[in-house]
């Protein structure tokens, strides 16, 4: 093995590194938004489920929640609803919004385990 073989053979598309930082920052923001939609949707499902449960005891909350969750997911995935709509459905939108703003930075710690920094690579 000689020195000439050390030269990298791996190329990247033109302009790749110029565009990358913005692309990653956009992806991070999108992930933040997605995570919060999930959180607000969960809160809204709980509130609506409670309303139904209190209104009609003949059907279980779980059934209602499952149906509502499915329907809400359809609305979200179809792009008709966003996090603001979810907030409107929540019982305590101001509190949720306040938490969103305060915790935006550490949002992912809420649901994802931090394995990387406690585990060995090998």
């Amino acid at each position: 093995m000689n020195q000439s073989q050390k030269h990298t053979i791996f190329k990247v598309p033109e302009g790749y590194f110029n565009e990358l930082p913005e692309k990653i920052l956009r992806k991070r923001k999108w992930k933040t938004r997605k995570a919060w939609i999930g959180r607000v949707a969960a809160a809204a499902i709980l509130v609506i489920g409670m309303v139904f449960f209190l209104g009609e005891n003949s059907l279980s909350t779980a059934d209602y929640s499952a149906n509502i969750e499915e329907e809400m997911e359809l609305w979200i995935s179809a792009g008709y609803w966003n996090e603001e709509d979810m907030l409107l459905l929540a019982e305590n939108p101001d509190e949720i919004l306040e938490i969103m703003l305060q915790e935006a930075w550490d949002y992912e710690d809420w649901y994802e385990e931090d394995l990387l920094y406690h585990n060995e690579i090998w």
């Binding site: 093995m1 000439s4 073989q5 030269h7 990298t8 053979i9 791996f10 190329k11 990247v12 598309p13």
Partner: peptide, 11 residues
């Protein structure tokens, strides 16, 4: 997106 000669690819 691979730019090497035959020897580099072999490596």
């Amino acid at each position: 997106l691979i730019d090497g000669d035959a020897i580099q690819k072999k490596l």
